[in-house]
Structures are given as structure tokens and as C-alpha cells.
Design a protein around this nucleic acid. Structure first.
Lengths: 184, 184, 184, 184
DNA sequence: CATGAATGAGCGTTCATTCAT
DNA sequence: AATGAATGAACGCTCATTCAT
């Protein structure tokens, strides 16, 4: 099933290579084909939709995201584990611009991606729950909400300089802490 | 000077009406004309570019943004003033989707918008500075950075339910507070 | 009949003023109206077509063209008269870019222009005939053909530098002389 | 390398066919597509700009222009060679209306066209120079000026009847001869 | 009369997607 | 399986002309 003909594999690789250099927000299959020296049809054969291609581009990052979560779960200090993970997650979002779209998509094209996403969400649920139980994170937030907040910070950083990253993530980290009433 | 002919005003209003229902991120003047039952030329007469139309859509909101800032400046408690303003600003961003683009644009089409923006930025600088001096906000943030963070929160809220609004803004408000070292 | 209301006369004059500064090959009535600070409708009222406006722009030049022809007719040396006229005609073509279109038009909008054109053609016929009889110009050319050759030279000059004018006109003048068989 | 697929060749040919019947001064790619029964995209694929299409329409003519020049260079009588060439050049301009625009263009789309033009210009420089040295052509004209005069004659002929051609070219040929002072 | 708002045909151009080769 | 030619909808924009005010 995974046995690709040699030339097919080569095409696929070239496509991915070009796609990685493209803006993940607007993958234009036509242009990618041209730059990869490959017919449009070939691109469509390998990746029936732009989203399928995006998933493929993101797969490796998804793997690292899973590892990040796993490592954080292993931390005995649940608060510290959560924070470390959070920072890593933002970094991965910044690295792979398509991550947001893939994570938020309701439907997944590839089974592997679906599985990866499921496991990631599961681990983050766990991670968050324990951090909340440990009193390190405010208890009224779901993992999905945190994910959206991460996307928000990603967005904010992209609007300005990369140098904003650290401060912005700090505000997120702090913002997630339980606290006295905000306006008290 | 601003006296528009009756039919012109009607067209203009129809255009704006349609535009308000459109995605402010991608105002397509042709489509707007069609939906407004108006010739393309009419749209271009009133709004030479999509950005001009966006500015118009946003103008009222900009005015309210100015008022928000003014009111907040008048608050004797600089921290409270800042927080109240921040919440209102996020709300205005949510109401008027184009606000982000208009505020971040380098060039403005209308003079009025330019003036409004200038005064808004000025007031927010003031507001932030005083909140920082009062110890209510971490001192290492510029007003521009705060604006970007607001855009981030707007983005996050739009990704999910409107119900997220309050919690998400809370995290921002708290995140901006000065604090012990984030991971300490 | 010619009694124009004061404001009408003012509009008319402003329109002509702007039109004189415009490219006579492509008079855009809309743009002229805007630059003249006048409604499009006003332009159309005064000049129902672009050609009508062009005729008006050209009228003075047509007058001078008539004078040129008259003066040349008065020259006792028919060859010299013709050549002088020819040079002047080219100059007028260069000055008033619309002259070509007006002279070559089959239909005239204004009666005055029609009359001017008729008298000009008549005089040039006369002028040419006498130059031909005097042996100064090859006898196998009609006045209409000479006019077209003038337009050709105008075109050639416009393709390059104004400095070409003298040499190019020279080649025309010489080219019109009777001569031994061209490939002799 | 130049092997076009059968259907592509057919499209291309249809496009060119329609284009040949169009006014080369204003090739409207949309209209051509419509008339050729072909999608707009197809036209753009073959000819990215109107000028590219014009060049293609002209390419064969450019080739013949080169041959004309070559043959003329081979003539032992430099004056006769020049005159023969001149007549042929005018004819080619009349045949291919776009020739003027292609020759006068600063930038060329196709390399082949650029090369053809360069060689043509070179040969005509040579041809003119020799004719001038031989006393057959007035020495104060550059090849570029002669080209412009040719365009002028083309223009003049197009204004009237095709029958004008011979006489008009005669006047050019004679006009280029060295001569006593034009008005003496 | 003057105005200028409105019209809408039509051009240039792009791009996702299909399908003949 | 791969190719890339073809498609055509749709957008941005311009401009000559009409017509309500």
C-alpha cells in the first residue's frame, strides 16, 4: 500500500520540498507544481486538496507536538510541565504556519494525522487537568480553549516582530494562572 | 459640503449595508455591487479601494474607540482605567472585524480616519504609560505590542464561541500584570 | 444663437482649457470634466462627442492653416509658395495633434469647421496645381495624397525627437519634387 | 523541445489566426479568446502579454526582413541595394501591422525576436552606411531615423488607398537622396 | 441649464480544477 | 501513473454615456 514507484516518490518529495517553502496559508497547487517541475495533475494525485498537502507538511510537527506533550506529562511538577509544554507549543505553531489550520480542522484527510491529533488532544487534556488540579492553571479553561489562546498568541506575534515572542508567551503563561478576581 | 444627493446616499447606504454583512478580510467590490443591486462603478465612486470601504465601515467604531480611551484616561485609578479600556477595545474589535486592518494599516485613505487613529494611539500611549507607572501593568510593553495582543485575543475568540470572550480577555488582563518571574 | 449665458460660457472655456492640455488622440470627457471642475453632463451639452470637442480645439489652427494657404497662394513663385506652405502645415500638425483627425474626418460636426476645411482644401488644390504646373512638384499627386504624406511625416516625427522635424520635412519636400526615375 | 501537443498546437493556431485578423494596435486577449472559441487562460498560457502575441504574429515577417537586409547587403551597387531594401521594408510594414510596434519596442519578450531585431538593425546600419558612403543617400540620417520615416510612410499609406503605396514610397526614396539645398 | 451619480459593458488577469493525451 | 493544456468563473478596474435631480 505504501509502495510508491520510484518516480512517484521523487515527485512527491519535490512537491513537499516546494510546499515547505510556500506560505501555508495559501498553498497554490498550480504554482507549487510549476516550481516543483511537475504537472498539476501529479500534485492533485498525491494531494487531492490543499488541506491534504497541508496535513502532510504538518505531520512531522504533529509528531514533535506529541513528544512535547509526552515529555511534559512525565514532569513531576505538573505546573512546570504545563508551562514548558505551552512554550514549546507556541514555538511549533510559529515554525509551522499550517499547524493551526490542521489542529482546528474538524475533518482530517489522513488517518495518521487524525490519530496523531487525537493522541495530542488527549495528552493535553491530561496535562491541563493535572496542572489545574495542582493549582497552577485556572480551572475554568478547557484544552480546546487553551489551544485557541495559543493560536491567538501566534497571531499576535506574526503581526509584529519575532522578538515579541518571549514577552507575548509570558503574558499567556501568566494569564493562565489562577488569580484573584481580575478587577478586584 | 457633505450634502449627498438622495439617490447617492441611498446607494452608499446599500453598499455599506452589504459590506457590513461581508467578511471584512476580503471585501470584493464586484460582489458587493452585485448584492447591493448597484453598478460596479457606483461602488468605486463611493469607495475607490476596498480599504477605503473598510475604513468607512470602521469609522464609527473608531470614534467609539476614541471615547473609550478618553473615558479611561479620566479614571483616577490608572490601573482600573486601563483594564476597562482594554475590555472595551476587545469588544470593539469583535464587533467590527475590520478594525484590526484599519488600525494596523500604515496608510490611511481618509483624513478623518488618520486623525482618529492618531488621537487613539496617543491616548492609549498615555493610558498605558500611566498604568505602568502605577504598577498595574508590566513596564516592558509598548502600546503597539498591547494592540497586537488584543488582536491576538480577538483572533482566539473568533476561532471558537463568542462565549469565550470573557475568559479570554481575563487571561489577557491578567497576563499584562507585572508579576514574579513567570516560571519561578 | 451664439448668445451663451455667462456661466455657460465660463464652463465652456474651462473645458476647452483643460482639453487643450490633454492628449487629443484620446480625449476622455469624464476626466476633462473632473479637471475642469464641471459636470460630465456639461461637457456633453457643449460637445456632444469627443470629435466635436476636437473640432473646437482645432478651429483656431484651421484658421491659421487657411491663412497659410492664402499667403502661399499669393507667392509669385509657385514652387516656393508650396514649399513654405508645406513646412507650415507640418508645423501646425505638430502643434495641434488633433488636426489630422479633423482634416481626415468624412463628416464634420460644426458648419464652420466644414466651411474652413472646404476652403483649405480648395486653396491647397490650387496651390498644388500651380506648383505642379510650374514643375516644382511631381504632377502625379493629388492634394489629398499630399495631406496624407504630411500626416505620415507628422507620425514619424512623433515617434522620435522633435529635433527630427527639420530633416524629416526636408525629405518630404525633396521627395515631392519631380525627378528622374527613382531607381535610375 | 518545440514539440507541442496536438491540441495545444490547434489552440495556438486558432488564437494566432484570430489575432492576425485583429487590429495589431489593440490586441484584446479576452476578445481573441472568445472569437477563437478558447478559454482566456489558454490565450494567456500561450502568450503571457499582448506584446508577446504581437511578437509571435510578427516573427515570420521579422525573418523576411532579415533576409531582405541580407540580400540588399549583397548587392554590389550600394544605392540600389538600399532602395530595393527600403521598398521591401515598407511592404513588410504594410503586410504586418504590428511590425512597427515590435521594432520600436525597447524590451522584447522572446529571445528569438530580440536576436532577429538585433541582426536586422545591424544589417540596416551597414546598408545605410554604405549607401551614404556611395553618395546615394544623404549622410545626415541615422538608421533609426530612416526606420521612423518608413513608419511614417506606412502610416500615410494606411490613411488612404493601398494604391498610394508606390508613389509614396517613391517620395521617400527620392526624399532620402542627397540633394541641393531643399529651398534653393 | 448644469450637475454628477449611476450604469454596465468589457478588458486584463488569476487560479482552482478538470481531463485529454 | 504522470503530464500539462484547457477551462471558465470571478475579480479588479476603467470609461463612455445616460438620466435623475
Amino acid at each position: 500500500m505504501n509502495a510508491l514507484r520510484a518516480d512517484a516518490a521523487r515527485s512527491r518529495e519535490r512537491i513537499l520540498e516546494v510546499a515547505r517553502r510556500s506560505d501555508p496559508k495559501s498553498l497554490r497547487l498550480n504554482e507549487i507544481a510549476r516550481e516543483a517541475g511537475v504537472g498539476v495533475g501529479t500534485v492533485y494525485r498525491h494531494f487531492p486538496t490543499a488541506h491534504a498537502l497541508l496535513e502532510e507538511l504538518t505531520r512531522e510537527t504533529l509528531g514533535r507536538l506529541g513528544e512535547v506533550a509526552a515529555r511534559a506529562c512525565a514532569d513531576t511538577d505538573s505546573g512546570r510541565g504545563f508551562e514548558t509544554a505551552l512554550r514549546a507549543v507556541v514555538d511549533l505553531h510559529l515554525e509551522a504556519g499550517g499547524l493551526q489550520a490542521v489542529l482546528l480542522a474538524d475533518e482530517d484527510v489522513g488517518e495518521e494525522v487524525a490519530a496523531l491529533k487525537a493522541s495530542i488532544f488527549e495528552r493535553f487534556d491530561e496535562l491541563l487537568r493535572r496542572a489545574q488540579e495542582g493549582g497552577a492553571v485556572r480551572p475554568d479553561l478547557s484544552a480546546a480553549q487553551v489551544e485557541r489562546l495559543v493560536c491567538g498568541v501566534e497571531h499576535a506575534i506574526r503581526l509584529g516582530e519575532p522578538a515579541d515572542r518571549d514577552v507575548f508567551v509570558d503574558t499567556l503563561v501568566i494569564g493562565l494562572r489562577p488569580s484573584a478576581a481580575p478587577m478586584g
